[in-house]
Design a protein around this nucleic acid. Structure first.
Lengths: 207, 207
DNA sequence: GCAAATACATACAGGTCTGTCTATAGCCCT
DNA sequence: AGGGCTATAGACAGACCTGTATGTATTTGC
């Protein structure tokens, strides 16, 4: 049942066949990501998900609650994609690291691509926003992403793995920002190659 | 008179000694960047800049107008910093490219650091926001940044300069995202070194 | 010193936001 | 068949938003 975790907007199952809670979450996810979180009101989410207001507030006690759930949902989607790419059969340890950039292809190709949902979340819900749940969801994503890349790099036995992890993470997040402003898919290949050079450089200097 | 272009929050001149327009712009700049654009209302900007509402609307016909001006102002600030770093005396062409990462030190050290103002702007004012002036200001920044890095790289006569420009830009923007979530200054050094490796690799393969 | 431009203070209109309340309709389970 | 759970529909309160209108004070130029 990985259907819910698809990145692509198109769904096999029509929206109104889903349970109300999933309908709300999916509608909110689309709207929050396409527009921004603060510019999408509860009323619109309710209208477009075809749900009554009380039903909404039964499933999500507050908008902040929905936002945090949306971010955890998006996190699951992204790690699903990352896993799919990095766990392909026949990849060498080094290629598995580079595969995180392959995972960007599908999102970047989607016309609904609007950058990294978590960077966008940070932009709207910084430290002064007083939304601890939202902040926590964002921080959890970045921590998990860091650990994910670190675990991919670990088998390479680099001399300064933490440094390379930060470099890969920067290339990854940077791809998402730059791609958003230029819409040039070449960024993926360029940064995968950059990562390869950095990794091989780290391996060489660690020998 | 580069005072207005200082990144640091502290100002030598007190705020209420400035002309109303500058007071408004400076207050708005602080608030928009610390919080987010959509979550700061006109009333707050007016209150904190000690200005009457009509005065505000005389200088800025609409909030969108103020936002676009804010972004152009921030752009000037950032390029001021980039110029300062890259035009230091005694830098080799390669070191001048790497100096763009030095420019990040000052912003990252500031407690008010909240990431890249333009990525934040994109997060709130995407294509569906219908704010052409704001969009244009953001696009102008990224175009100018691209051209800036390209002009720094040009003297190195790399075989694929455009590719390396994208890599450097990704490392630069990635630094801002990652630094925002980890607050680790080591990111700068790591990515400057990454850039060095990529540049030297490009020089080697172009020979 | 006086006139004109500029800025201040504040009330207001019309809209949107989140969240609550009331009342009604459908559905499952026994 | 009927009780209880769940969803729908829509009005409503109170706060906030942008932008306008109406006066009064202050500064500036000559």
């Amino acid at each position: 049942m990985g259907r819910v975790l698809d990145f692509v907007d198109v769904d096999i199952q029509p929206l109104d066949a889903l349970a109300p809670r999933e309908r709300i979450l999916k509608t909110a996810s689309d709207l929050f990501y396409r527009f921004s979180i603060n510019s999408v009101g509860i009323d619109r989410i309710i209208a477009e998900s075809g749900v009554a207001k009380m039903t909404f507030y039964k499933h999500f006690p507050s908008k902040a609650d929905l936002i945090a759930t949306y971010l955890r949902y998006k996190s699951a989607v992204w790690f699903q994609m990352l896993s799919t790419s990095t766990e392909r059969a026949g990849l060498s340890p080094l290629e598995r690291v580079l595969a995180v950039f392959d995972a960007l292809e599908q999102p970047l190709l989607a016309p609904s691509f609007r950058g990294c949902p978590f960077a966008k979340g940070m932009a709207e819900f910084g430290p002064e926003a007083n939304s601890p749940d939202v902040e926590a969801a964002i921080a959890a994503y970045f921590t998990r992403l860091h650990d994910f890349v670190a675990s991919l790099i670990e088998p390479l036995s680099l001399s300064k793995p933490e440094r390379v992890v930060m470099q890969i993470l920067s290339l990854f997040q940077g791809s998402l920002v730059i791609a958003q402003s230029t819409r040039d898919l070449a960024i993926i290949e360029a940064n995968r190659d950059a990562a390869r050079v950095l990794l091989e450089n780290g391996i060489a200097s660690s020998s």
